[in-house]
Computed example of a mutant assay.
Amino acid sequence: MFHPLRVAEIRRLTEDSVTIAFEVPEELRAAYRYAPGQHIALRRLSDGPEVRRTYSLCDPVAAGDGAPGSAPDGGSPGAGPRLLRVGVRLLEQGEFSTYAAKELAVGDEVDVMTPAGRFVLDPRPGRFAAVVGGSGITPVMSQIATVLSREPGATFCLVRSDRTAASTMFLEEVADFKDRWPDRFQLVSALSREEQQAGLPSGRLDEARLTSLLPALLPVPEVDGWYLCGPLGLVSAAERALRALGVPRSRVHQEIFHVDEVPAPTPVGALIPGGATVRATLDGRGGSWPSLEGESVLETVLRNRSDAPYACKGGVCGTCRTKLVSGEVRMDRNFALEPEETEAGYVLACQSHPVTPVVEVDFDG
């Protein structure tokens, strides 16, 4: 659900990135509770079609203010956050990021969806590590600060890759982590386009490099959770490296920030000529509608229920995740769902096309 929130602060991080803080009224704070690693969708309504983008929340979660079910003692979380802060990087020809970084001003109102996402690290004792690239640092900032401040028995190793030192988001904040938790936080930085006086030699963090680097940094088998976030190439390379090092799939969590060029998917299952019937349950209400030929499940539902959840429509953010109750679909791309989720019957509505005459989904499932 969207609510109009006032921009309370805009702070420049680098030449092409900013943080934006939204003020949450007291009566809405419970609705905007979030867990470390979650994101929000922002919506802009202009003369043309509405534009939505998802951005990760970068601030730590205060004790008792987490998402439902994330309170340390398993009890009820607190009142919720007073501010929601996200990191935004300006993308070339990025319609929303250009607006957010160059036009948005303190005092403006923006439609903000309540927090979502399953790229979450609930605070607990243990050894954790992350491999991030570029703006992929944003959700991991919240994870690191939350777990280390609330769990004395937790450690965190961060391996980050950026183009140059000048383009590195949250440079000072990460340096502060080293000062606050010198014995529990480890940082390794790599720059792909310039040399640095300390740290790794310049160059990309590819699969071969990560396979040799990670065991030299920490005992890989003892890491309780790996968090991979950033461009598709880096996340895929890190995932393959961890698989080669014998890390169980259940300990690896990933979130893709950018998908540049991906080969067209090989169609599996023929679409229904003339369209199918889509049945959907959303916020406790059900409906049944005919789909247009070639239309995705999300597109069919949106024509009849404008409140259907979505953000990127690219198979990346996972906002449109839904449970497939009956029938079959062809899912073109999936960069958001874990294997356990697809095995349990979850699909991305924006990428799913009916291949049976009737398809039933449950957005509440």
Rank of each mutant, 00 (worst) to 15 (best):
R124P: 09
A175W: 11
Q143I: 12
A145K: 02
A166E: 15
L148Q: 00
D179K: 14
D162T: 01
F170G: 02
P139A: 09
S142R: 00
I137C: 02
A165F: 02
K178D: 14
W181G: 09
K178F: 06
R180D: 12
R160I: 08
P139N: 07
T164D: 11
A154V: 06
S149D: 14
P139C: 11
K178A: 15
P123R: 08
F128E: 09
A129C: 13
A165I: 12
C157G: 05
P182T: 13
R150A: 13
A130I: 08
E172F: 05
W181E: 10
D176H: 12
D176W: 09
G136Y: 01
A129I: 11
R180E: 13
G134I: 08
S142N: 02
S149G: 15
P123G: 12
G153V: 05
P123T: 10
T146P: 02
M141T: 08
G126K: 09
A166K: 08
S149W: 01
T168P: 02
S161A: 15
E173H: 05
M141R: 05
P125H: 08
G153W: 06
D179A: 15
V131F: 08
A129R: 05
T164W: 02
E151A: 09
F170K: 06
L171C: 09
L148F: 03
A154D: 05
Q143Y: 06
